[in-house]
Design a binder for these strands. Structure first.
Length: 422
DNA sequence: CGCATTTGACCTGT
DNA sequence: ACAGGTCAAATGCG
């Protein structure tokens, strides 16, 4: 085992957000410094809670512009507020200007509400023929009628989902820290039952998605997260109103479960010059019991650019996956990044991002080829361990840089890192 | 005047 | 030595 990364990150809790604009998180901050960061075009601004002195609140954050066009800002929060001065509920900023590019994270939550009206399955316009013929794993079992329950469609219309509505640039909602938690069916210890449950849920979801919007792809993550909840990645396109779609999904039940939808947004500014570039693929697979674990190609089907994929990473997937791996036998997640461009385009803090987002310290336990600077240095025989990979990207040494970029072979060879929770 | 930001210096860990 | 985080005096603003 090669331990290239130590775990010496700050003890305090950190989290990172990447947004298209500066977000108002509801707290009052006071700037206390700014710093030019190595290899960054823009300075990093440091803020502390205004009530640090009054109330001893130790929360800080720093904000850095990481992209110009379109602008993107990375905000890292360090520590939690102990003050009592939240001005409003912290918003989740979901931003996209491309209405054809929408993803929604879905989780199954054990039924906690009883006020929702149950619809007779026979009244549901479900068609159960699209998957059984082609894929056994997605087969629909007509004996397992799983009714979709929708509460009153307050401002939710199917027509509103697809056409003519301008998508809001931002959707604000309260934080949901209980995301990606579990369903009874999925968390069952009975594997057969669980598998069956997954099957009908998949089928259900396919049906459901067909009803509420044009679904592009869907992935049911097999692992459950910390709290044991199962979750699904689904991607829609041609969604007229995100809000409507979100509402619609959130008032839906599948069997005994409430569907919880959380929107994950991607934005893809399509420039002419980029149209022909090969689609980048970020493949995340589960290394524990490698052969049994699914390879999650989260982004291969997404119409994204290099920069966007970085944002996508920042927003959700690794965190979700990692949460789902936590408390399982899975020892880590392998992240293959098959893009030279990603490495070159300002993603020098990917590793940091992953660590921050996962809210824990991760160790690199293995690498394939080179990932970012540290792995790369290891390839070169550098044995110096360092926990901060960001400061050494790009490599200071010209020799290393040349090696890293030579022949542009990054794509062919791939870069990867296996992370382990320590 | 009071409070916030700016900015170079200082501190800390590697 | 260096990078990044923080301090605090100077400065700006309503």
């Amino acid at each position: 085992m090669i331990n290239l990364f130590s775990t010496c990150r700050k003890n305090s809790r950190t989290s990172t957000e990447v947004t298209s604009f500066l977000i108002d998180d509801g707290h009052v901050w006071r700037k206390y410094g700014q710093k030019q960061i190595l290899n960054s075009k823009h300075q990093r601004n440091y803020y502390r809670c205004t009530y640090k002195i009054d109330q001893g609140c130790r929360a800080t954050k720093h904000v850095q512009k990481i992209m110009d066009n379109p602008p993107k800002y990375k905000t890292t929060y360090i520590g939690q507020h102990t003050c009592d001065n939240l001005q409003r509920a912290p918003p989740i900023i979901l931003d996209s200007s491309d209405p054809s590019d929408t993803s929604i994270l879905l989780s199954f939550e054990t039924m906690g509400f009883t006020e929702k009206k149950q619809i007779d399955p026979s009244q549901c316009s479900l068609k159960h023929n699209s998957y059984s013929s082609s894929n056994n794993h997605l087969s629909w079992n007509p004996n397992k009628q799983v009714p979709f329950i929708k509460s009153d469609p307050v401002s939710v219309t199917s027509s509103g989902l697809n056409h003519g509505h301008q998508r809001p640039l931002a959707v604000h909602s309260g934080y949901d820290n209980g995301d990606m938690t579990s369903s009874v069916a999925y968390s069952s210890m009975n594997s057969t039952y669980a598998r069956e449950g997954e099957e009908w849920n998949k089928a259900d979801l396919h049906e459901l998605f067909a009803e509420v919007g044009e679904k592009e792809d869907m992935y049911v993550v097999r692992k459950v997260c910390k709290v044991g909840r199962k979750f699904v990645f689904a991607r829609f396109f041609k969604v007229g109103s995100l809000h409507v779609l979100e509402n619609r999904l959130n008032i839906t039940r599948i069997g005994n479960f409430n569907l919880r939808a959380k929107i994950v947004m991607f934005k893809k500014p399509i420039s002419e010059s980029k149209k022909e570039s090969k689609r980048d693929e970020w493949v995340l697979d589960v290394p524990s019991e490698l052969t049994q674990s699914p390879t999650v190609n989260l982004l291969a089907s997404l119409n994204h650019t290099v920069d966007e994929s970085f944002v996508i990473l920042s927003l959700f997937e690794p965190q979700s996956l990692w949460l789902s791996f936590n408390n399982t036998n899975c020892k880590g997640v392998k992240i293959d990044i098959e893009s030279k461009n990603i490495i070159e385009s300002g993603s020098n803090s990917i590793f940091e991002e992953v660590n921050d987002l996962m809210g824990m310290d991760l160790n690199c336990i293995n690498t394939c080829k080179f990932f970012i600077a540290r792995d790369f240095m290891a390839e070169e025989g550098c044995t110096k361990a360092d926990d901060d990979v960001t400061s050494t990207f790009p490599p200071k040494s010209k020799k290393l840089r040349d090696f890293k970029y030579k022949h542009g072979k990054m794509k062919d060879e791939g870069e990867g890192v296996i992370l382990e929770c320590v």
